[in-house]
Design a protein around this nucleic acid. Structure first.
Lengths: 247, 247
DNA sequence: CCAAAAGTGTTGTTAGTACACCCATGG
DNA sequence: CCATGGGTGTACTAACAACACTTTTGG
């Protein structure tokens, strides 16, 4: 089979951009890196990079995730162990004017990670940080908007995460391997920006088969009565879903 | 700003592929076209084509939709009038080996259309048809698989449609501008492959504010007692959702 | 003892399922 | 008259919201 004549279609650059979310100090945060090059030099942007010539889109996203955070994205088919993060394709952004230099199509991915000590980006501590999504998405005077169309991409990723923890067990991706029901509840509260009833939440998550499995231990790291420790169970879908309170 | 040096990143071709779904004779059907060129010559494939140099991804998908079906995708912001179809981005497929000729990244889109008289594809009546998705996705002896990774793309589109009609008013995109509750119920039954209780379905859809608005007329096109005609209302999200029966 | 967080019991309400029943038309 | 699909009423039940109450730790 002969290759296409390149004159019959326009060439594109293809990148992956990452919306990496975590929960820190009761707030939903995203990983952003400072741009060292023009355009948007000095502005914050989502981590990302070019897809290589013989690389799948998901592999490129996983590679970028490791480079930026050291996190290993785990295959959803295998059990989640160690520093595994959830990684899925989000959407693709291809406005002809989104990059002033040339035609770039970006396949955005969404990653959910437990709280990490500190981001690393090429050893430069000042060039990457976790920022509350509330600050990054706030319109207004003092806020510096993200580079390119990354505010839009981030908003789409946050919206996806907010809706997906309703009907899936994905919220456990924000937790360490062992966690308490209270810690899981604080994840929901941070992602949704609401306050949930601890009693009803406890009944709901422990009563859904396959969502949580007791790991045997207990902890008192929050003070008060010791809490049971759990691991994420095999269930991936929550039925009936976790109900998000109105507004 | 200088353009990128093309040697710093690999060039890609970017295409849009369409999963166009409709309901015909109580079955969920997809639009497929016969390939006239190598590779996969003579095999059925999803309609699609290259994204042009100065074209947005959504515009490219809308253009392909018009070319293949004559359907006009309507902006979700505007009211749905005439032969409008729902169109949304589905996912992006970029396996390095998905096209044997060169590196092609395809941004798949999902379109939902009312039952149309007959597909047209460049005037050639034999080169495009509506096929039941059940047949297209059946593995096995007599079935001819779709070209490229289009079986996977179609499966993802069908799955998206099946889950999205649960919590949105999208099922009306499969109906003509005016329709009865019974016709809408047959859409759900065809897409989900289940049988629903007509009485409870009627109560559910007419009781959800903004889902359906009576258009005043009645019809007897199904025989039996005349049924009220409705149009799709302004509501886009169904809360509580339509419940899909187990298995 | 008290504060704090974990966990259980109970009650009222919402929304679903199942199904009996009536309505309006064509043949 | 009867078949066919449209539409309403009603009992039963699952699951959620609200909140009183008990349990187990640290200070």
């Amino acid at each position: 089979m002969p290759p296409y004549d390149p004159s019959t279609f326009p060439p594109f650059a293809v990148t992956v951009d990452l919306v990496v979310l975590t929960v820190r100090r009761h707030a939903l945060c995203a990983l952003v890196v400072r741009r060292g090059e023009t355009p948007f030099q000095g502005r914050w942007a989502l981590p990302g990079g070019f897809v290589r010539a013989d690389e799948d889109l998901g592999s490129a996203a996983a590679r970028e995730l490791v480079e930026e955070t050291g996190l290993c994205a785990h295959d959803p088919a295998k059990p989640a162990v160690g520093n595994g993060a959830h990684l899925e394709q989000l959407a693709t952004y291809g406005d002809p004017a989104r990059d002033p230099r040339m035609r770039v199509v970006s396949v955005a991915h969404l990653a959910l990670a437990p709280d990490l000590p500190a981001p690393r980006a090429g050893g430069d501590a000042n060039s990457a940080r976790w920022a509350p999504v509330e600050d990054l998405l706030r319109e207004g005077e003092q806020a510096t908007p993200l580079a390119f169309d990354h505010a839009r991409i981030l908003a789409d990723g946050v919206e996806r995460a907010r809706s997906k923890i309703e009907y899936s067990s994905l919220a456990t991706a924000f937790c360490p391997p062992e966690f308490t029901v209270g810690e899981l509840r604080r994840v929901y509260e941070a992602v949704w920006g609401v306050v949930l009833d601890p009693r009803n939440f406890h009944r709901k998550v422990t009563g859904t088969p396959g969502f949580l499995v007791p790991s045997g231990g207990t902890t008192t790291r929050q003070g008060g009565r010791p809490a049971q420790l759990f691991r994420a169970g095999a269930a991936t879908v929550l039925n009936p879903p976790m109900l998000r309170p109105e507004v």
